Computed example of a mutant assay.
Amino acid sequence: MKLKKIAGALSIAGIAVAGMLLTAPAASAASCGYWTTHDAKYFTNCSTHSQKIQVDYVIGSTQSCAAPGTTTLYDGWNNPVTNAFVVAESC
């Protein structure tokens, strides 16, 4: 009887570990693209080449090139950044 309980527990643990392994890539992918902290806004380009991005503000938007790595996005005067995304794979 104890063997069945242990086997069942190991099976459940295996499912939990498999679930963590499946969600790990999604968690690391979240660091690519637009993200914020309490005091700054960023865009991380995870590709190996520059990408054309659009930065949206409360009023309007701009487009610029983002080199591989993390770029700090600056708010306009009384016009904060609301989002940023890739519009072309190269620039």
Score class of each variant (00 low, 15 high):
residue 77 W to R: 08
residue 1 M to I: 14
residue 81 V to C: 01
residue 63 Q to G: 01
residue 74 Y to I: 01
residue 27 A to T: 03
residue 83 N to L: 10
residue 78 N to M: 14
residue 36 T to R: 05
residue 44 T to M: 06
residue 62 T to P: 07
residue 10 L to F: 05
residue 15 I to Y: 04
residue 36 T to W: 06
residue 49 H to P: 01
residue 64 S to V: 07
residue 50 S to Y: 07
residue 75 D to L: 07
residue 20 M to G: 14
residue 28 S to I: 09
residue 48 T to L: 09
residue 65 C to T: 02
residue 31 S to A: 08
residue 67 A to C: 11
residue 22 L to A: 11
residue 7 A to W: 09
residue 87 V to T: 11
residue 59 I to P: 01
residue 66 A to R: 00
residue 80 P to C: 10
residue 54 Q to T: 08
residue 60 G to N: 01
residue 56 D to E: 12
residue 25 P to K: 04
residue 21 L to Q: 11
residue 3 L to T: 13
residue 54 Q to V: 05
residue 87 V to W: 14
residue 15 I to V: 11
residue 57 Y to N: 00
residue 17 V to K: 00
residue 7 A to H: 07
residue 40 A to L: 10
residue 5 K to S: 10
residue 68 P to M: 10
residue 67 A to R: 06
residue 32 C to P: 11
residue 90 S to H: 04
residue 47 S to V: 10
residue 40 A to E: 03
residue 57 Y to H: 03
residue 1 M to Q: 07
residue 17 V to I: 10
residue 18 A to K: 00
residue 80 P to M: 09
residue 47 S to C: 04
residue 87 V to I: 15
residue 72 T to W: 01
residue 66 A to I: 01
residue 23 T to Q: 08
residue 61 S to C: 10
residue 24 A to V: 11
residue 33 G to S: 08
residue 69 G to L: 14
residue 58 V to S: 02
residue 67 A to P: 07
residue 81 V to A: 00
residue 74 Y to R: 01
residue 34 Y to E: 01
residue 56 D to G: 04
residue 73 L to Q: 02
residue 48 T to H: 14
residue 35 W to C: 07
residue 73 L to K: 00
residue 83 N to A: 13
residue 39 D to V: 01
residue 88 A to L: 13
residue 38 H to F: 06
residue 73 L to S: 00
residue 70 T to L: 15
residue 3 L to F: 10
residue 61 S to F: 15
residue 48 T to W: 10
residue 7 A to N: 08
residue 78 N to Q: 09
residue 84 A to L: 07
residue 45 N to H: 13
residue 90 S to V: 04
residue 51 Q to T: 09
residue 6 I to A: 09
residue 25 P to I: 04
residue 83 N to Q: 13
residue 35 W to G: 08
residue 77 W to V: 13
residue 15 I to Q: 02
residue 57 Y to P: 05
residue 52 K to F: 11
residue 45 N to V: 03
residue 73 L to G: 00
residue 76 G to Y: 02
residue 6 I to E: 12
residue 87 V to Y: 15
